[in-house]
């Protein structure tokens, strides 16, 4: 129950970050979407024990975060909130994979721990990139980007309407849940029948609302399509961003500058 109250304002906050202004915010959403996808694919394409080649990828979220003037603390908190699943699965790695892979002094580190660290690192990088994408573009711009990249119109319209009515229905669910809590006199946890009737009421209201929205749409000439009058233009800056990051990411992925830099430094000092 607490989740409604805690996550809705939060959800709105992520959305409000998108209305800020920065060089990153001004980029074409398609460019940001493609770069983010490339970033994620690059990160997850390493083998399971990859740690050191993954670390340099942090440059992407760090640079975007600062350029887009996003609050790092907030994103970090969201990362922590989302981490349980990856951790749950990853935590088995040290149990099943006990072969010692690395000696640091007298400390022996097994492959499992390394792959767990790798999983968590992947998790942080991919989720951070996705969050930055949303926070610097806004959901509706991303939907527009999807539409222009060829996603089916019905799906894009569905995303837009879902996003619009999330808050409205979330509030309604909250009111229903509060009304129920008022009358449950401190008993914790809701039983199945109660939740079913709660959901059914919410559902009935939702169906009525859908009917009204449909009428409102019809009154203004709705013909099955939602049109957005928002020109998207890929300019020189957008191209530079896309090409620059593509080159950088591919370089990080296939050339792997880290060991080279390391060896260069190592060679100098020893």
């Amino acid at each position: 129950m607490a989740r409604i109250e805690s996550s809705f304002p939060d959800f709105g906050y992520l959305d409000s970050l998108a209305s800020r202004d920065s060089p990153i915010h001004r980029l074409d959403p398609r460019v940001k979407l493609l770069t983010t996808l490339l970033f994620i694919v690059c990160v997850v394409s390493f083998d399971r024990y990859a740690l050191s080649p993954l670390l340099p990828f942090a440059i992407y979220p760090v640079v975007l975060l600062t350029l887009a003037k996003l609050p790092p603390g907030y994103l970090l908190r969201k990362l922590l909130l989302a981490s349980p699943f990856a951790l749950c699965i990853g935590i088995f790695n040290p149990l099943f994979d006990r072969a010692i892979l690395l000696h640091v002094g007298s400390l022996e580190i097994s492959g499992g721990w390394i792959s767990l660290a790798s999983i968590m690192l992947r998790f942080v990088l991919t989720v951070a990139a996705a969050l930055i994408l949303v926070a610097s573009s806004g959901f509706d711009s991303l939907c527009l980007a999807l539409a222009r990249l060829g996603a089916p119109a019905a799906f894009v319209v569905q995303l837009l309407l879902l996003h619009r009515y999330l808050f409205v229905l979330g509030d309604e669910a909250l009111r229903l849940a509060r009304a129920r809590a008022q009358r449950s006199f401190g008993r914790h946890g809701i039983e199945l029948p109660v939740v079913a009737s709660l959901l059914a009421q919410l559902l009935l209201r939702t169906l009525d609302r859908a009917q009204r929205i449909y009428l409102a749409m019809k009154c203004r000439g709705f013909d099955g399509e939602l049109r957005l009058l928002r020109p998207l233009r890929i300019g020189a800056t957008d191209l530079c961003f896309l090409i620059g990051w593509t080159a950088a990411l591919l370089c990080l992925r296939f050339v792997g500058p880290a060991p080279m830099i390391g060896r260069a430094i190592g060679g100098m000092s020893w």
């Binding site: 119109a153 309407l161 879902l162 619009r164 979330g170 809701i190």
Partner: peptide, 28 residues
């Protein structure tokens, strides 16, 4: 689209939002 019933458009939208809201109500 082939079905041609455009009333399903808003219905899907709000029902998606409904599922979202419903998933936030946990029960024991």
């Amino acid at each position: 689209q082939a079905n041609g019933d455009d009333s399903v458009v808003p219905l899907m939208g709000v029902l998606g939002a409904f599922i979202f809201a419903a998933q936030m109500i946990n029960f024991s």
